[in-house]
């Protein structure tokens, strides 16, 4: 349903980074390094001006509450995957997922549009945060440095979702559904900008 065919033929490049909370600056800096002039998105009028959006790493409960409070959830649900390509890193992947496990007591607001089930903080406390190289065939042969910080885990995916990368034990760590992209790790904390370039092609 959320196919690339819905993408407008005239592909413009106004790239936004959701700037409610999290490692916004790191994403902005990678984008600038590869020649994109990104904008910060905090309010609906900022969102209306972009056709690509990165949701950074941060706390999904915090970002979700601010998305709800500042009326960003509805426009995101209406546009994401259609005329708005969206990439969620870590907390961003949680916010994109249709189903969230180990959510805050009482639930938490999410965008909930990507056909996958994500478990929050699935590896344990900060002491279980780790780095590991990842094979990502879509990005070529050299491994991508993977930085996982209190990371979530993609535990199930729908039929329309394509797996882009797994850990050696089979855990899905990057996935794509048309113009929606989710990574449970942080390419923005490394010098490797291939995932950002990949997103700009979606």
């Amino acid at each position: 349903m959320l196919e690339g065919a819905l993408r407008p033929p005239e592909q413009s490049m106004t790239v936004g980074v959701l700037a409610l909370q999290g490692d916004v600056r790191e994403h902005l800096e990678v984008l600038r390094r590869i020649g994109v002039a990104p904008v910060e998105v905090r309010l609906p009028q900022h969102l209306a001006a972009v056709d690509r959006l990165i949701i950074p790493g941060g706390e999904s409960t915090t970002i979700g509450r601010l998305l709800y409070r500042y009326q960003l959830l509805e426009p995101l649900r209406a546009r994401a995957g259609r005329d708005l390509a969206v990439w969620g890193t870590c907390a961003g992947a949680i916010l994109l997922a249709r189903e969230v496990l180990d959510a805050k007591q009482g639930g938490q607001p999410t965008i909930g549009i990507m056909e996958m089930t994500v478990r929050r903080n699935a590896y344990g406390s900060q002491l279980e945060s780790f780095e590991t190289p990842l094979m990502v065939p879509a990005l070529g042969t050299p491994p991508l440095p993977g930085v996982f910080i209190r990371a979530p885990r993609i535990e199930a995916i729908g039929r329309e979702v394509e797996v882009l990368a797994r850990l050696p034990d089979g855990t899905i760590v990057a996935a794509r559904q048309g113009r929606l992209l989710a990574t449970t790790f942080h390419p923005e904390l490394t010098d490797d900008d291939r995932m950002h370039r990949f997103f700009l092609e979606l």
């Binding site: 700037a19 909370q21 490692d23 600056r25 941060g58 706390e59 915090t62 900060q126």
Partner: peptide, 9 residues
């Protein structure tokens, strides 16, 4: 990195 994820919070 965890501190970077806390930024703006």
């Amino acid at each position: 990195g965890l501190a970077q994820m806390l930024k703006g919070g």
